[in-house]
C-alpha cells in the first residue's frame, strides 16, 4: 500500500464523529479610509492621497527623487518587467509601482493578485513598493476581503506594510528581505 493509501486509511479509522462546518463569518466593521490609514501607519506603511487628475509619474518622481529604475505598468517605466524578466534585472529595481485591488481597513493590508505584479517576485525584490489603491475599494475586515476576492487565483498576496523583522531581541527593523518601504497611493 502506498503512503497515500495508508495515511487516508488511518485517517478514516481514527477520525472523530462528524461535526458541522460553521457558516462563513462577517462581523461588519468600519470600512473607512481613517481606519485603513491608522493601521497602515501602525505597521510601518504610509498613506498618500493623490489627485486622480495628477499624472502618476509626477507623484512618483516627487516621492522617490533618487529612484533611477522604476518598474510599473501604471506609468512610463524605466525598467520593463514581465514574467520572463531575468533575476539580475529585477534585483536592480529601485521602486515598483503596482495596482492594489483591495484595501483592508482593520489591518492596512492590500490585496495584490499575480496579474498586477508584472513578475511574481517584483513586489518583494524591489527596494521600495508603492501600491495605487482606489479609496472605494477599502473593506472593513479580512472576512469581507476574502468575500470580495472570491478566488485567490494562481498566486496572490495580501501585503501589509514594508518587510520587517523583530528576530533580534524583539527590536523592530523595517526592511528585512522585501521592500524597505511601502506607500499606498490612495485616489
Amino acid at each position: 500500500m502506498s503512503s497515500r493509501e495508508s495515511i487516508l486509511a488511518a485517517v478514516r479509522r481514527n477520525r472523530p464523529e462528524p461535526t458541522p462546518l460553521p457558516p462563513v463569518a462577517d462581523f461588519g466593521g468600519e470600512a473607512t479610509v481613517e481606519q485603513f490609514t491608522h493601521w497602515l501607519h501602525f505597521i510601518g506603511g504610509q498613506v498618500i492621497h493623490i489627485d486622480p487628475a495628477q499624472p502618476l509619474e509626477e507623484v512618483v518622481r516627487h516621492l522617490y527623487p533618487e529612484a533611477v529604475r522604476v518598474a510599473s505598468d501604471l506609468l512610463p517605466a524605466t525598467v520593463p518587467v514581465d514574467a520572463h524578466t531575468p533575476t539580475a534585472v529585477l534585483e536592480a529595481v529601485d521602486v515598483a509601482v503596482l495596482r492594489g485591488e483591495l484595501g483592508v481597513a482593520e489591518n492596512g493590508a492590500v490585496w495584490v493578485p499575480e496579474a498586477n505584479m508584472l513578475h511574481r517576485a517584483l513586489p518583494m525584490i524591489a527596494q521600495h513598493l508603492a501600491l495605487v489603491l482606489d479609496h472605494a475599494s477599502i473593506v472593513a475586515t479580512m472576512h469581507q476581503a476574502y468575500a470580495a476576492v472570491q478566488h485567490t487565483g494562481h498566486y496572490g498576496v495580501f501585503i501589509a506594510g514594508p518587510s520587517k523583522t523583530a528576530d533580534i531581541e524583539q527590536s523592530l527593523v523595517i526592511g528585512a528581505h522585501g521592500a524597505r518601504s511601502l506607500v499606498v497611493l490612495l485616489r
Binding site: 492596512g108 468575500a147 487565483g153 495580501f158 518587510s163
Partner: peptide
C-alpha cells in the same frame, strides 16, 4: 482564511496581520 488570518498574527505578536499573506 478570513477567520484564521484575523487570529494568527494578533495571537502571535500582536500585529493586526502578517506583512505577507501569500496564496
Amino acid at each position: 482564511l478570513g477567520v484564521f488570518t484575523r487570529l494568527l498574527a494578533r495571537s502571535a505578536t500582536g500585529q493586526p496581520v502578517t506583512t505577507y499573506t501569500s496564496h
